[in-house]
Design a protein around this nucleic acid. Structure first.
Lengths: 195, 195
DNA sequence: TAAAAAAATGAATGATTATTCATATGAGAA
DNA sequence: TTCTCATATGAATAATCATTCATTTTTTTA
């Protein structure tokens, strides 16, 4: 038991994604996850020690997927400024294609430091660092101004995308389409930091 | 009872700010708020109907303060581009000066749509709109490009600042000082949208 | 096929806490 | 001082769920 490729493990993660997304971690009932996964309540505890282990496992899974996917896509582009554009588009598309996951990351990522004081979301840090690395590369190639600080730049850019996602995740209507939003946000940023 | 200028009402809000900030809304115990406010548990229910009313009242109070303060400060500047710079600085200073409040807004604002499905944070919308209005003004004065969409711009800029705050609120060490971060973030943005 | 091991079940447990309310306290009026 | 009303108290209540574990079902082994 407890194997990550186990059928039931997968079912629990998948059910939990939906249940956590609906009302947040605290309002999510373990029994509802079990029900949605089509198993008994107790079975969950054969695969996870505690309720919060489900959330952590879920984070790890999804973030790894997101991170691997983004890395691959970014590597297809060689121009750092183009990489930034692509990052924006991929990120927002990801939100669109994984609404449940996006809701959880939006809401619970913030909460995570509160209720799991010791859990450090390493994958999230790496995701941010992808942007930092692009900025660094751009500086080295002379495409980005030398005075740009990657640590600030990566947060500013990620934050801009993230706030746009938050708006989408939490509101019903989509006012701007993904391509437009991605293009605008990456262009503000690129024009703001390029040489 | 229930008067907003009431002594005990104030004490409860103030105690709740600290208690919510420490471990988040769900882990906060009403009895701990009461204890910190120096009153009996039951007294809280003379001023608030439910636990979540405390959080909503707290939001309203703090956001009103923040909003009024920002409005006043922004109005001292006439150049829209300077207003953006000032917005960044004031916003980050505010986070610095109100760490407890900042933690609550960072964490619970996200959560709020989950556990109070009907509560719409009007003051937050207005805060975002301050940025939207500045952008609009800049476009009218020919200082900002005509193709900039205020609805995207305001979210991008706020998101950039907000992600920087998140980093500060959740980490112990401050790597960049406020003035530097504010200057950089507002400059990326200004260079990205100016004519 | 029978025995043993592994997985799964779900009713019962036990801990947690928001909320209530019978009672007490204090302040102003007469 | 005594009565009244508003305010405050905090022990008791009652509902909620995560977690456990004795029992059952399924799978593997021989």
């Amino acid at each position: 038991m407890g194997q990550k490729n186990n059928n039931k493990y997968r079912k629990i993660i998948s059910a939990a994604t939906k249940v956590f997304a609906k009302n947040g971690y605290y309002k999510a009932k373990v029994s509802e996850i079990a029900k949605k996964a089509g198993i008994a309540d107790g079975t969950i505890y054969l695969y996870f020690k505690h309720k919060d282990d489900i959330l952590i496992a879920l984070f790890e899974e999804k973030m790894k997927e997101v991170l691997d996917n983004m890395k691959k896509q970014i590597s297809l582009e060689s121009d750092p400024l183009k990489k930034i554009q692509r990052f924006a588009l991929i990120h927002l598309k990801l939100i669109e294609d994984n609404k449940d996951m996006a809701e959880i990351i939006q809401v619970e990522l913030r909460q995570s430091s509160k209720f799991m004081k010791n859990y450090h979301n390493e994958k999230f840090v790496q995701y941010l660092d992808l942007i930092g690395d692009i900025i660094q590369e751009g500086k080295e190639k002379g495409l980005i101004r030398k005075d740009i600080i990657p640590g600030i730049g990566k947060r500013a850019f990620f934050g801009a995308l993230d706030e746009m996602s938050r708006f989408w995740v939490l509101s019903k209507r989509r006012k701007y389409d993904i391509e437009t939003a991605a293009k605008h946000i990456s262009n503000y940023f690129i024009d703001g930091i390029k040489s």
